[in-house]
Write a protein that binds this DNA or RNA. Sequence first.
RNA 1: GCCGACGUAGCUCAGCCGGUAGAGCAGCUGAUUCGUAAUCAGCAGGUCCGCGGUUCGAUUCCGCGCGUCGGCUCCA
Length: 641
Amino acid sequence: MVEITLSDNSVKRFAEHPTGLDVAGSISEGLARDCVAMEMNSELVDLNTRITQDARIRLITVKDPEALEILRHSAAHVMAHAIQNLYPNVKLTIGPVVEEGFYYDIDMEPISKDDFEKIEDEMKKIINSRLPLHRQLVPKDQALKHYEKEPYKLEMISDLEDGTISFYTQGDFTDLCRGPHIPHTGFIKAFKLMKVSGAYWRADPKNPQLQRIYGTAFFDKKDLKNYLTFLEEAQKRNHRKIGTALDLFSFHDEAPGMAFFHAKGMEIWNALLDYWRKEHRAAGYVETKTPILLHRKLWETSGHWENYRENMYTAVIDEEDYAIKPMNCPGGMLLFGSKHHSYKDLPMRVAEIGLVHRHELSGVLSGLFRVRAFHQDDAHIFMMPEQIQDEILGVLRLVERIYSTLGLDFHLELSTRPEKSIGTDAQWETATRGLKSAMDIYGADYKINEGDGAFYGPKIDIHIKDALGRTWQCGTIQLDMNMPERFDLSYVGRDNEKHRPVMIHRVIFGSIERFFGILVEHFAGKFPLWLAPVQMIVLPINDELIPYAEDVKQQLIRAGLRVELDGRTESLNKKIREAQLQQIPLTLTIGAKERESGTLSVRTLDGKVRYGISHERFLTRVREHVDARNLDFDLFGEAPS
RNA sequence: GCCGACGUAGCUCAGCCGGUAGAGCAGCUGAUUCGUAAUCAGCAGGUCCGCGGUUCGAUUCCGCGCGUCGGCUCCA
């Protein structure tokens, strides 16, 4: 007899040794139908595992987050099975689950998306056969024998510890696998192959190149549909498309990986940075600017010449070596070091919108998201060790203000000391404790990435979540115990002795170019009024009204607004359509009525039109809305006046 | 940097098997003067990414280079 404790702490007794399925079945038929696996004494195992002694069981149903991973892992097997059926000579390697699905790396002739349909059809056959997945344990020597013709699998098994090795079989297909798996292939209700690319065996370019085939799978057709809709939505918001359509920026072959910002893109850029400066000033920052081209000596002092040179653009000038800065900190160190500082000066919060260049590999460039030249909204804070906590807290609060203004949620992650690192244990201890206590006081949950810090200090990474729920790491706060040392920075303490300041680097936007791209996608090009490159457009109904419309435009421009006038001899409908497609928040139509009554009719981006708004009310509302940096478009309330 | 796909007018895209290119939008000209998402007509616009090769002939086939995209790799 076995005693089974379920996750609600209820206890069930079984005379025989039941499987997980039996346990589920003893509770309800529906549960048995929805179960895919179970957790037995904190270990995920197959549902058909026999429970031979008293155990604590948690049944995993299709609703549980782990279930999707199990399903996708099984789907990877099904794909490999299908591919092996279609291309008998392929050699399998590994097939893991990834965030949005799964892939399988297979040594085979290159295939393309055109081959997907065939593979998917074969997969459908396997799924419709509802093949059970059986686990069996095999001694290592036998496993090696089984895989005589599969060199990659042999290599993997050889690397495993001695003892028994688990295999999973579905029909005539067997694969080395830790499991667990779904009970039978019929659980895969919806799947799709997504893309194919090259990948090296064990990620080493010296090894053969494999075909990495990506797919995704769900328990429900609806989930797959939602996922595909999400991808479509993301594609619609692609910042490269919107950037072209709204005339914000472009790229040219003459400067790969370096963006050209157009006039409208710069309006957004400037509005964003105006706001950034306002917040930083209020938070006690000063702003500086350092050169982008600096002598080799400086890069030797900072260590970049030795460690980062392959990513730097260099130049020989008057027979001396120079490099274009990939980071702002060395220049910032020079500035700090060029003067004596008292402990009374600290903390010093020194910001710099710095233009940096990094020679990234050509294959990684991607729109504004990955470029070779970009601006960082950098700041270096110099302080005494006992100020760490307060300063980090200050940065976190500033981060929160700025992100929330943009409608972005965020979460924090702390990275601690890596194996290879400089500094003493005591320094790391002080630094890490400072970061932790600041985050504790700040009060947000955070994830800890052990050993993920930079070699020169621990860091807090800030991940934002955009309107589609995608996360991006933008902000980072890094403690640096290296630079002050290398540049021999000091301040004079109360004791009249020299002391080494503690320094942090921090960015909030990170790469402003990349952040700009994220904002384009976050807002889908519909920038809120305070950021919109053209805040409003004036449309005269006919040519006779152009002079009056011009007056209106001038008034608004004098009020500090970004205004355009469409005086083309086109139909009103056409001009409205184009204004809407350009995502201009406010469209002001000027007809004889508006001129006679001295009012405005205002169309907002949601298509609502309000007539008879006085110029005064309009200006007041717009100013309030812009000053408050509101994100909504409904300036004039529900009831059209 | 590696693998794959792609590169045609300002933009979006068509162009089967090799016979020097087409559409819509944008632009320009003219007519229309319009009340909340495309008025009509005409005109103009291209080193078909670049350089080589094959061929009587290359936008089309082949090679190399550049760029873009998707992955890989890298990421102080």
